[in-house]
Simulated assay, not measured.
Amino acid sequence: MRACDLMTAKVATIAPNAPLHVVAETMVERGVTGLPVVDGAGRPLGLVTESDLLHRLAATEQRQHGYLWGVFHSISRQADEYARSHGQLAADVMTLAEDLVTATDDTTAEHVAKVMEERRIRHMPVVREGDRLVGMVTRAHLLRAALALPEHRDSQAPDNVIRREVIRAMRQQPWADTHFTFVEVRDGVVSFSGLVRNEHVKRGLRALAEEVEGVREVVFHTQPTPSYWIGAP
């Protein structure tokens, strides 16, 4: 699945000189949490999110930074912080286009999710031909995509094939112990027995097994690895 399959194509936008109360009203009316800021030709100049507006509102309760803060932060950083805290227009509080993380039509859903997680962002504009805004992907789109992932539990696979694939997957993971954790499969039900270090490893094993095609259920008949064993924690 690609960004073009996930995105909202009819994106609400705002002008850079829009007052912040208009930005807030537009977000509420359109039911969105982020608005691309565009120029007259529709090219993205930046992005305003609900977090930017909340930061602006909360700034009225914040104390002014002291002398040392100014010493250890660049002039640009100080000016940007002041604009975000005191500005009245969308252009004052937005994330600038040069700092925006964008996607293209062909960016995969997996890559979008990875970048959003790493950068701790909730919106990713989709651009075409370098600078033309064509859509927006949000975390809500990714969640819907995750819910739409194809299920394979109704598919058929021989038990011996399932067991082989589960063990193969375990051998690829450094936290999975194929020496003391045993796998049996009957009618598509994967059963783990033997020793498992802790609940975290059990959760990992469950997720690992459920990824194998044909697995209908995962059960555990395991015991905790004794704490005195080397490497048990």
Rank of each mutant, 00 (worst) to 15 (best):
R2C: 02
R2A: 02
A3Y: 08
A3Q: 04
A3R: 04
C4K: 09
C4L: 05
D5N: 10
D5F: 03
L6T: 11
M7K: 10
T8Y: 11
A9H: 12
K10A: 14
V11A: 05
I14G: 00
I14N: 02
A15N: 14
A15C: 13
A15V: 09
N17Q: 14
A18S: 12
A18D: 08
A18Q: 02
P19D: 06
H21P: 00
H21G: 00
V22K: 14
V22Y: 06
A24L: 08
E25L: 08
T26M: 08
V28M: 11
R30I: 01
R30W: 00
R30F: 00
G31F: 06
G31N: 12
V32M: 04
T33H: 15
G34R: 11
G34K: 14
V37T: 12
V37Y: 03
G40M: 10
G40W: 14
A41S: 15
G42Q: 01
G42F: 00
L45C: 05
L45P: 13
G46V: 07
L47T: 08
T49Y: 10
T49R: 06
T49D: 11
E50W: 07
E50D: 14
E50H: 14
S51E: 13
L54T: 15
L54E: 11
H55T: 11
A59S: 15
A59K: 04
T60H: 14
T60V: 13
T60Y: 11
T60G: 14
E61I: 00
R63W: 07
Q64F: 11
Q64E: 12
H65E: 12
H65N: 13
H65C: 04
G66E: 09
G66T: 15
Y67D: 10
L68P: 09
L68R: 12
W69V: 15
V71Y: 11
F72Q: 14
H73P: 10
H73D: 12
I75N: 10
I75V: 14
Q78N: 10
A79W: 00
D80S: 14
E81F: 07
Y82N: 05
Y82F: 10
Y82V: 01
A83P: 00
A83F: 09
A83K: 14
R84Y: 06
S85F: 02
S85E: 15
H86L: 04
G87Q: 06
G87C: 07
G87I: 04
L89F: 08
A90S: 03
A90C: 06
A91F: 10
A91T: 08
D92Q: 07
D92S: 11
D92T: 02
V93K: 01
V93F: 03
M94P: 07
T95R: 13
T95Y: 08
T95S: 11
L96W: 00
L100M: 15
V101K: 06
V101M: 04
V101Y: 06
A103S: 03
A103I: 05
A103T: 04
T104K: 03
T104M: 00
D105W: 00
D106C: 08
T107V: 07
T107Y: 01
A109F: 01
A109G: 09
H111I: 03
V112M: 02
A113W: 03
A113E: 02
K114D: 14
K114E: 12
E117Y: 01
R119F: 03
R119I: 09
R120S: 13
I121W: 07
H123K: 04
M124A: 01
M124R: 03
